[in-house]
């Protein structure tokens, strides 16, 4: 079976790649494009470590085929900072020590960014439910939730 040729946009750059139909977007990002910031924690959509944004929607890259990316705009953790300027969420995660091992962190950041783009003033409960698909085994979530709430406040100009 010949590989499929896919043209897409990743973090604003036009990207072309070849992949097998079975390969997930996560496989493609990590193994073909060497964008290893998205992590594989479960390959079944249960941990959120591979969270990316596809055409504005938060998705698990492990639950999307690489071929489905044709024509879409994909955003990954690697595109979150603007040059050498960290995104406010990245800065707040550091300030709040909202990470320990850090393997779930890219997924949390992408998911939180997607939340704040939709809801700039979320409640703690809204943050917790929005992020329920991102597992973290180190932090107990406390500092992550605080970091997201604090970022939201700062981004609102609070």
């Amino acid at each position: 079976m010949a590989k499929a040729h896919v043209t897409t946009t990743v973090n604003g750059d036009a990207v072309e790649f070849l992949c097998d139909a079975e390969q997930t977007l996560l496989d493609v990002l990590r193994d073909e494009l060497y964008l290893t910031g998205s992590k594989e924690g479960c390959a079944s959509g249960d941990c959120g470590a591979c969270s990316v944004i596809a055409d504005g929607r938060l998705v698990c890259a492990c639950l999307m085929l690489g071929v489905e990316a044709e024509g879409l705009a994909i955003e990954t953790i690697e595109g979150m900072a603007d040059g050498d300027q960290l995104h406010p969420l990245q800065t707040k995660f550091l300030e709040h020590a909202a990470l320990q091992c850090g393997v779930c962190t890219p997924g949390f950041l992408v998911a939180a960014k997607s939340l704040l783009e939709r809801n700039p003033d979320p409640t703690e409960i809204e943050v917790r439910y929005w992020l329920a698909g991102n597992l973290c085994r180190c932090t107990g979530y406390d500092k992550i939730v605080r970091a997201v709430l604090d970022t939201a406040e700062e981004m609102r100009g609070g």
């Binding site: 990590r30 193994d31 060497y34 964008l35 290893t36 910031g37 998205s38 992590k39 594989e40 990954t76 953790i77 690697e78 979150m80 900072a81 960290l86 990245q90 995660f93 550091l94 300030e95 020590a97 990470l99 850090g102 393997v103 962190t105 890219p106 950041l109």
Partner: peptide
Amino acid sequence: PVRPDGVDKVTGRARFGADVH
């Protein structure tokens, strides 16, 4: 203080077990 390995971990740059080719 902000942890010294922090920026690598919030940018996806940090290399975990499966991140090397």
